[in-house]
Design a protein around this nucleic acid. Sequence first.
DNA 1: CTGAAAGCGCTTACAG
DNA 2: CTGAAAGCGCTTACAG
Lengths: 328, 328
Amino acid sequence: MNQAKIYDIAGAAGVSLATVSRVLNHPEKVKKGTREKVLRIIKEKGYKPNANARGLASRKSTTVAVVVPTVLRASISEMIQGIADSAKKYGYSIRLFVNGQHQTSTDAWSDVIASSVDGILFMNDEMENETYELIEHTPVPVIFINALSKSTKIGSVGIDNEDCSYRVTKEMITRGFKDILFITTEHKYAVNDLKEKGYRRAMEEFRLLPSVFKSSGDLAINEKQFKEMLDSRTPEVVFAVRDSMAISFMNVASKRGIKIPAQMQVVGFQNTRYAELSNPKLSCVETPIYEIGNVAMEKLTELMKNAEETKPTNVVVDYRIIYRESTK
Amino acid sequence: MNQAKIYDIAGAAGVSLATVSRVLNHPEKVKKGTREKVLRIIKEKGYKPNANARGLASRKSTTVAVVVPTVLRASISEMIQGIADSAKKYGYSIRLFVNGQHQTSTDAWSDVIASSVDGILFMNDEMENETYELIEHTPVPVIFINALSKSTKIGSVGIDNEDCSYRVTKEMITRGFKDILFITTEHKYAVNDLKEKGYRRAMEEFRLLPSVFKSSGDLAINEKQFKEMLDSRTPEVVFAVRDSMAISFMNVASKRGIKIPAQMQVVGFQNTRYAELSNPKLSCVETPIYEIGNVAMEKLTELMKNAEETKPTNVVVDYRIIYRESTK
DNA sequence: CTGAAAGCGCTTACAG
DNA sequence: CTGAAAGCGCTTACAG
């Protein structure tokens, strides 16, 4: 009934526990006959090595930490799913840290380190210099997700937000639209700053006046703000840093009788599930966030296997623009 | 630079490592002066006990497993957030298992057990008898989430789906609507079966003909099916087991020119973020899924503290119906 | 290819 | 209130 120990397996197989351990960790070092016998008994007894003991002895835990500010955002869920699928493939399990916005307070971070994981996947909206410093001193490999690393010592996987935003804006301009409103968050996020930068660059390139609206994170407040804004003008194109904001804006506009996309076009950012459930269906930049999680976990595996030889790299993932019903 | 060990702390404080350990685990057993000194040094050195060693020695890991089929569903994310917040409060960390639909294959489950967690929060859509059996033999406490347990040995936290569905249906009937369409999943899920049961009970009570539509999980297929269905009739009320389905149906209907709620009312189930982003805004049953996660983790804490005395209970959480724009 | 033994970093009765 | 010692269940050089 109780979980079998390695001793039990060794006893039943008539070998030493060292051999059982080898069968599990270095099967090639064990003679075929012995190996198969041990394996059979392991299966029979349903033996699974104790993770703590294993971790303590080998200094490896085959777990990775996934550190995120929240799990509520659809994009973060998709990313985690991508990580989870990849982790399963490589035999890693996941320790989840939902740290709120204060992820890199020394305290929160040392919790992560003390949990004895073999590597860390770190997703954060903000990237301050202290963050980099803290992370560079971390004893296990770290990969940034969804934000490209500015440090050569830390790898990352993400899209080039600035370039993406620049290209979308430019695309709309060359299609003949000049009055493009950019909606971002009031709260300062590194990724959103990059998106704004790209937008501004495109606008300035064409000598157009950038128009940036910083909206609150709260849906109800947003709607009120959006209504007020629409009192004074109807932009030709609205480009928002998140799908949810784009949709919220679109809904407010629809209710005022503004025809979408005829009178106003709306573009979102991310391609979360919201996009397909909106009416009209939202056109948006598709960030392959599942893939980003997936690849990040894969890269982390490499780093964990041979931290010395493998150089941290910044993997820039491709995005594409999906035109649905909210654009002409 | 390296992580400090308990020996280092003991050395620096001039005490034995037993004392350092006691300061951490049973501070009341240590004289105040000693305790404060040790605590100070711990802080200075940023010492965090090695989780594996601690787990191995104490047979406790202060980690719980959260086992879910996917992380992609908005409701599951909210639940995890609820769990995470509660876990942080009680000092537990989370090991996340994203197991797909085959969660209780003996294999997947023994992975969970082998990960040496102190307790398990288990969310699954299907609840077969083998599942119960497997779980009853688990050496640590388990709590079902979002589905009430049929077993007296396993606790659970969730809403009474059948009752809820019954009441919503009845409410619509007594408001004078007879033609109520129920949309559920093609794939068999225990929770959805319960919802259907409640719906049928209400309809039969009023001698109305139940009309159940089983829709695919795929959005594109759904839309096609919905269109075909709307060719033949326009139900007065549509009640779907998930917000996303309700919204998808609503959008298809809107596009055909059906006025919502004037000609057709739509009610969803869950109150995910989708509900507020739809146009018109979706009326739906609000399952307090964040709270469910939160409470489940709390209950699990109790069970882990004294598994013997604490009896597993089934906590039935209240739901409420939120009327927004998709109903009259 | 296999076994005996040391050690991973802690916790917890047991003495004192 | 504190220390010495055993032990948690593994892994991995080291011999053979």
